[in-house]
């Protein structure tokens, strides 16, 4: 599709149109986070100018001085869980696709069963387990649950992609005398970098946004996550929408940064792979 100005214009037309569709609701969230509750409903599409402008929402978020702590907790939990999901997931997928051993197929199926039932149903057993382990109100508990929750889908997708990685590269590495461990870390991992980035991008979202497990496993002041912190603005009859929108607008920033980093990895991985191949 060498650049033909007409088709290039059509392409950008489509992209801009879809961007508008994706962005409009987000824009509404952002502008309404700078309004009071009354301002939001008086005219939701108006820009927060003049009378409408209010930083009340942001002030209520800031007034609760613990939000930096909540952000730290969310980031810690999300990043550590992600590293574990990606690393252990890729290792397991590699083990399953690369080597033939007894029970290989069964283990593969077993490892993806977790996609089919939400872990949330096992909450009580999990809580009892963490009570026994003395891990309630710790971030470790959250990391363990999110890792266990994210592994099946990561293994599933990694397995699919690893099946299409050619064996020749690995075999030539073996001939060069690389150990099985080095083959994984030095040959296979770089090869599937784009997929790792893709899985990272969508594994982090449910972790970052989860409300349920922080609520049950670590509701303590010290271990509260952002999503849980925001709940204080959501009451039975009165919801402080300005504060909710303000907090959530800010809460997009860290995931957005993570996304940008991962998607750079994705591109870099692919171009690097292309050069090699």
């Amino acid at each position: 599709m060498r650049s033909n100005p007409l088709s290039s214009m059509a392409i950008h037309g489509v992209l801009i149109l879809y961007s508008a569709l994706a962005l409009f609701p987000l824009l509404l969230i952002a502008i309404n986070s700078f309004k009071s509750k009354k301002g939001i409903f008086r005219d939701p599409t108006a820009l927060p100018l003049g009378e409408l402008y209010s930083t009340k929402g942001y002030q209520s978020v800031l007034a609760n001085g613990d939000f930096p702590l909540y952000f730290g907790n969310s980031l810690t939990v999300t990043l550590i869980s992600l590293v574990l999901i990606l690393l252990l997931g890729a290792m397991a997928a590699h083990g399953l696709t690369e080597y033939r051993f007894k029970g290989n197929g069964l283990l593969g199926l077993y490892l993806i069963l977790g996609i089919m039932v939400p872990i949330r149903l096992g909450t009580v057993a999990l809580l009892e387990l963490f009570v026994k382990l003395g891990l309630t109100n710790t971030l470790t508990a959250l990391v363990l649950v999110y890792t266990a929750q994210g592994l099946p889908i990561a293994i599933f997708i990694f397995t699919e992609f690893l099946k299409s990685v050619s064996g020749e590269i690995k075999d030539s590495a073996r001939i060069d005398g690389l150990s099985e461990y080095r083959i994984f870390f030095e040959v296979v991992l770089p090869l599937i970098r784009p997929v790792i980035a893709t899985v990272a991008v969508f594994s982090m979202i449910p972790i970052w946004n989860d409300l349920w497990f922080p609520l049950i496993l670590s509701p303590g002041e010290e271990t509260r996550t952002v999503t849980l912190g925001i709940q204080q603005f959501i009451g039975q009859y009165t919801v402080n929408w300005s504060a909710v929108l303000a907090a959530l607008t800010v809460a997009i920033v860290p995931v957005l940064i993570m996304y940008v980093i991962f998607s750079k990895q994705l591109i870099r991985g692919i171009t690097a792979g292309a050069v090699k191949g």
Partner: peptide, 18 residues
């Protein structure tokens, strides 16, 4: 606890002893 989650969350905590 958030009103919509209260019953479920409380019952889970009661069962787990927390």
């Amino acid at each position: 606890t958030t009103p919509t989650e209260y019953n479920a969350a409380l019952n889970a905590r009661l069962a787990g002893g927390t």
